[in-house]
Amino acid sequence: MMNKRMSKPILDVSGLTMDFGGIRALDHLDFDVQATEIVALIGPNGAGKTTLFNCLTGIYQPTDGEIRLACPKTGQQTRLNGLKPNKITEKGMARTFQNIRLFSQMTVLENVMIGRHCRTHSLILGAILRNRKTREEEQETIHKSYEILEKVGLAGQVDELAGNLSYGAQRRLEIARALATEPFLLLLDEPAAGMNPQETVELVTLIRQIRDEGHAILLIEHDMKLVMTLSDRVVVMDYGEKIAEGTPEQIRTNREVIKAYLGEDGE
């Protein structure tokens, strides 16, 4: 039922296992993400979805298994196990957080500029002397950040403190900040949580637009309508294991999935 694709995946996870003391949060998980694909990760609360994100981004060190990331342009493959979070971001995978983690006392623009950090280079001497190279780099940072903010619809609030934004705007700012690191794979942890229907519709458009610009997207989401309309492929997790994988249509009718969501005696 799974259509095996010919191209090499940009993210390849195999046998991923994560133990916390005696508790197994992830259990031999296998899945992959192809270039410019939208993959949704669903499952009941506590299924291990955010733990998976934390393993992928280097915040947790997985107990066992392999995580490999391949740049779609150069085809160069890197093993992510044991790399620090910042190195992983440099390799081209960026994320947002479920419980928004913006720099709330900094402005909207500055938040996005922080995302440009790993793609710029000026250091102490550059900062003090403010030579031509540094000035140009700074201008470029501002322009690129501003462009990204225009894309997510926050261009009107660049000088606002991030903490003063509305909830939905904060989620979009998190996406903007992650985009600024120039990822080819974007991990979104419940991007629609707390958004009103109008904002959710805008979010769907935004995510599609991001994909059309050449980014692959792996997202955790509870809003089934959003998952079903947006994703190319859905991976379902329960108790740290992958219980199903397929197109939205296939998942909709999968008995295992229905059981996981509604319990043993569900219809």
Binding site: P85, N86, T89, F103, E110, C118
Partner: peptide, 16 residues
């Protein structure tokens, strides 16, 4: 400044 506010978010943004 970003580091003062949130170390984990900073790392996720590629800051060493």
């Amino acid at each position: 400044l970003a580091l003062r506010e949130d170390e984990i978010a900073c790392q996720a943004m590629g800051i060493d």
